[in-house]
Design a protein around this nucleic acid. Structure first.
Lengths: 109, 109
DNA sequence: TCATTGTTTTGCTATTTGGCAAAATACGAA
DNA sequence: TTCGTATTTTGCCAAATAGCAAAACAATGA
């Protein structure tokens, strides 16, 4: 049952890198080929390829070949919902930070 | 808006380690002091302390002092739901692996 | 005050990770 | 088959991370 923790940690780890998160968010909208993903990430194609295989290895993505192109898409349905929950959480947090900043400004007057 | 990606990646990264995931899953049940968390993780207390501050830094946990004890608890409400979604996903995946294994066994006969 | 208990910080390795470039592989077209 | 395009793999280096041990910090009680 420790395997379960390891597998979940692997998933989080896979999502825990800005480039890979950019990839995943793009794929929430639908599948893309590597050639389309590379300019989105702005890294060397070999680097992007490694990120993609890491995400696939964790089970977050799946891929299918068509012609010379490889198309990646989301396999894990849990992800989009969690991402929007995080956006909401961060939004609220940002708001409260702004509020804190504002009240500190007032104190400083 | 790149800050948003960075912040989310930081959250995933924080959750992407077996020890930290054990901590978070334990805290889904309710708050615990460091002294209770340490034996759960089975690492040096200094190591556990670092894991805890990393999780707090990412916004996943919060803490409060009472006496000499520090109590950590979950701050990010999104996490438990996502974890159970992952368990479900991994469960189904495991099931299909078992099925694959079984059908391979049959082929081997 | 001083000693004790609970926690965090610092200092130090060993290991892992992310990046690019170059080589290798896969596939379709000429 | 040979060429060209798309992708992955390998080799290498720099930076980040996890771990323990020791030192530093509270907060409480004697």
């Amino acid at each position: 049952m420790n395997k379960n923790i390891e597998a979940k940690a692997k998933i989080f780890k896979a999502l825990g890198h800005p480039s890979r998160l950019v990839i995943v968010e793009a794929l929430c909208e639908g599948e893309l080929c590597v050639c389309d993903i590379v300019p989105l990430v702005g890294r060397d194609i070999s680097t992007v390829s490694k990120h993609l295989s890491l995400l696939k290895e964790a089970g977050v993505l799946k891929h299918s070949k068509r012609g010379t192109n490889v198309y990646y898409s989301l396999q894990m349905e849990c992800v989009p919902g969690f991402l929007s929950c995080l956006n909401n959480f961060l939004g609220k947090n940002l708001e409260s930070q702004v509020k804190d900043y504002a009240s500190n400004s007032i104190k400083r007057l």
